[in-house]
Structure formats: C-alpha cells, structure tokens
Design a protein around this nucleic acid. Structure first.
Lengths: 152, 152
DNA sequence: CAAAACACGTTTCATTTGCAACGATAAAGC
DNA sequence: GCTTTATCGTTGCAAATGAAACGTGTTTTG
C-alpha cells in the first residue's frame, strides 16, 4: 500500500494513555459498581446523590443541592419530586423565603440511608485497600485536577 | 430540636471525599475542557473517539471500535453515519466478511485530525506538567482501579 | 413605594442515551 | 447440506438529559 500525497501524517496518539479518557472509564466503572448498592432500592444516581446530601445536612433547598453535589437544577428538582413520591423525602416551603423549598429525609428515607451508606463506605474502604500506598498520590493528583482552573 | 425515637442514626459520609464521586467530577471536567478542542469542528464526543481510533488504525469495523474505545454499538454506528455524512469517514463493506463494515478516514478527515490531535496531546502535556511528581502515583492508582475485577 | 432586576424551582422541548428488537451474514452442530 | 446458533450493524422506542422559558417570590433601585 503506497503513500499518497494526500495522506496527511498524524501524530502518535494512544487513547488508552489519555487521561480524560481513562478518567471517564474509571468514573463509569466505579459509578456502575456503586450503583449496584442503591439501584436495588429503586434509586437513580441523581436521587442517590440527593439522598446522600440530605443525610448529612439539615433541611436544604434545591439550589443548595445543586451546588454541593453538582447536579443541574432540573435534575435535582426531578429527583426530589420522585423521592417525595416514594415517601423518602418531604418538601416544604421555606418559611423565611417563599422561593425556597426545604427538603428533608422522612424517617423511611433515613432508614434506607442507614442501610445504604454503610455499603458505600465499605466500598470506599475496599477501594482504598486496593490502592494501598498509591492512594495518597492518587488523591493528591485528583485534587490538583479538580482545583485547577479551566484550561487556556 | 429534640431527637425523636424514629431518628435513625446515620454514619458520617462526605461526598466530596468519595472516590466514585470525585472521579465523576474530574472526568466531566477534563472531558469538557478537552471537548473545547473538537467541539468547534462539529464533533460530538462519540464522534471524536471514533475519529481518534481511526487515526491510528487501518480500516476497522464498528465492533472493533466498540471494544477499543468503549462505546456501545449504537453510538458507534450513529457516530459513523454522521461522520460519513460530514465527509470525514468512508464506510465500505468488508470483502472477506459480509457482516463487517470497514471504516476509514477520508483525506479531509485525516486533515482534521492532523489539526485536532496535537491539541489533545498538548492538553495531556499540560495535565502532566500540572501533576508533576504525583503523575506516577495517579497513573498507578488509576491502573489498579481500571484493572480490578468488579466488586463482590 | 413602584418598577426593574434578580433568584428559585418547575416545566417544556429538542436532543441524546441505552436496550431490545430486527434483517442479514457467517459459523457450528447434526 | 441443512438447520440452528451466533455475530454484525442498524433502527425503534422509551427514558434521561440539558438549555431555555415560565411563574412566582424577593431584592434592589430610583
């Protein structure tokens, strides 16, 4: 097979060494594995995150959750609606600001999270054990990537 | 505020220390930054990955791409159709196996990748510079996470 | 105090997704 | 050799996603 003049030379590039790609792969894998824990409780990932945030915070607004668990407002809103429907969360208007809605776990919701959170914690432990002494470097690297300001 | 008997105690759990969550955050961030490079060329992420794979491989089938860049078959199929439409890729039936389709870059496609790939490589370099001596640990950790067999 | 600007949560709508069929070809089993 | 089974690529369809618009309430400004 001869080389035509129109064949533009391309630089070497291995996708499986490429950090954005690898990160996406790992994120998907870990997320899927973790989801085994809460999926059987009927929770979607956005719903799971909302529940997690409500687990260690008092009554919170949709906007709060949006900021702290990085879900877009519509996702939080829909997740909250579904969770209320399922009896896991209550939505009340905030007395001091009519625009805000105060989300809280119901007792049933708390019970569910009391079951699910330990699994998540155990999963994290397993990961940390696996990582061993590389955990520290991984965390430092992840920190740098997370906090760096956007490229160019 | 008094504690009711129905208040189930919940374990401490910080989402922003949680590896699956952090990984998802970083993956999204890096992916978005990278996408600035190819988005303006009209490529979606699946299309970008298909183009990358075609850049350093000969004529390849959809199934091949599916396996090597971890995109589900329908995504590859649709991406390939759009890329053919855009004149960046050609689709021919494989002569030796009638089920397979051979995808290749057109000269225009090669030219485009000759422009885009260096940007991606530069982006990777920037990341590695930022990571400094943590790069090694990060890569080792990522390797472990990627290759570990699924949990329980 | 009225009017403009802003913030919150929801909803709408077009697009993207993921799963499951489907038609077509090839390989395996009998 | 013929039927069954498996593989490939595409397509349909229901659900999820993301951006913008909307209604409501609050703050700011003049």
């Amino acid at each position: 097979m001869t080389r035509h003049e129109t064949d533009t030379p391309l630089p070497e590039f291995q996708l499986d060494d490429f950090l954005p790609y690898l990160m996406a792969e790992i994120a998907t894998k870990l997320s899927d594995e973790l989801a085994q824990g809460y999926r059987e409780a009927g929770l979607s990932m956005p719903q799971w995150r909302v529940m997690v945030h409500l687990s260690h915070a008092g009554p919170v607004s949709v906007r709060d959750i949006e900021r702290r668990v990085s879900l877009e407002r519509p996702k939080v809103s829909r997740a909250a609606a579904a969770l209320e429907q399922a009896g896991l969360v209550t939505k009340r208007p905030d007395p001091s600001d009519g625009r805000l809605i105060a989300l809280s776990l119901t007792p049933v919701g708390r019970e569910l999270m009391a079951k699910l959170l330990p699994r998540a914690i155990a999963y994290q432990s397993d990961l940390e054990t696996l990582l061993g002494r590389d955990l520290e470097g991984l965390r430092r690297g992840m920190d740098k990537l997370l906090t760096k300001k956007a490229a160019q």
